[in-house]
Nucleic acid binder design. Structure first.
Lengths: 180, 180
DNA sequence: AAAATAAGTCAATATGGCTGACGTAAACGT
DNA sequence: ACGTTTACGTCAGCCATATTGACTTATTTT
């Protein structure tokens, strides 16, 4: 059942990676981290992909449902800024979610041009299922890593974000977490 | 210049996330980690995307060049297994890389049906540039996290991989690291 | 000689991005 | 009050990357 028959793969050549290996690396070359992040992320999104495929949805739908659930009443423009995609790309996905009863829109109170986005019960349920799946993976992984790993992981992940955008992301998260 | 005007986003509703918050979480709800991983990965691949776009390549080309560079002489079937895409999907990307002189093929010694894959100098150079970019991001992030973070990050990332596939990935990495 | 394997290819399809151009409604500014 | 800007939506077309299924060629295995 092995996906990769490692035994048939050749080993690396000549002196690649030498210069880096004996520095303040704790013996872990960056290329390992790069590859682990690649595989980790693939499995991470894979959890959700299966569930979504059963509904005829893709990752784009996932992201929309997730962020609308986290920020009920957000404007379309905010969603575009968070996802960093174009209005046209969002359009199709959003319409599918609305047509199928996962997301609802409501005109803004003070500015009636705005279409504020909310999850319908169906959408809230989907968002919850998706978060549960991915929470499970984090829980298992962090449990394996021992105490303190959660805080370490949080710091690490935040540090991987572009410095110029990190504050923005932190504010986004803080705002979503703020219970009324 | 802000991408997201956070000040306009509404806060979260009612009692979401309550149950989880006061457990062995170190005060960090999983949904934060989920979002941070999303943003971190986006920036992580974004580094490479820019460089690749200038060459008319995409992420698919990146993955091929990376793994062929790490495992010179690997077979097409091995590459398919690592990337978990179909032969047809790989086909176009591989042909473009070969046509443009980034990858070369050589018939296998013992089995001449096999087309062993190698990076040409151009491909090795590209792979090196890409690894350098992403290494820089890891170095910056881990430096911010303090001593020991590299080892912690390695453990964490490996733990995020599906348990059934982790050994396989570790073997893949070990084999690539093995200097001849 | 027949079957299995490694690789490549053709055709059709889906998803999820993109740009450019427009349209409509509502708010804002002078 | 009029003109401009903003928020959103949509049409049309394009591109990159993935999919499935069917088939060919060369080579190895049985």
């Amino acid at each position: 059942m092995a996906d990769v028959n490692v035994s048939t793969l050749p080993v690396s050549p000549k002196g690649s990676g030498k210069a880096e290996d004996s520095q303040g690396n704790e013996g872990i070359p960056a290329v390992e981290l790069i590859e682990l992040l690649f595989f980790a992320y693939r499995d991470f999104v894979g959890d959700a992909d299966e569930l979504l495929a059963g509904l005829g949805f893709g990752r784009a739908h996932h992201r929309v449902v997730h962020f609308v659930n986290r920020h009920p009443g957000m404007r379309v423009a905010d969603l575009l800024a968070v996802l960093k995609i174009t209005k046209q790309s969002l359009g199709r996905v959003l319409r599918e979610l609305i047509d199928n009863g996962y997301i609802v829109q409501k005109a803004g109170d003070t500015d009636r041009r705005e279409r504020l986005l909310y999850v319908a019960p169906k959408g809230e349920d989907l968002a919850r299922q998706l978060v549960t799946l991915q929470t499970r993976r984090f829980a298992r992984a962090l449990n394996e890593c021992g105490p303190g790993a959660r805080l370490e992981a949080r710091k690490f992940l935040a540090s991987m974000i572009d410095p110029e955008q990190r504050a923005e992301v932190e504010r986004l998260i803080a705002r979503a977490n703020a219970k009324k």
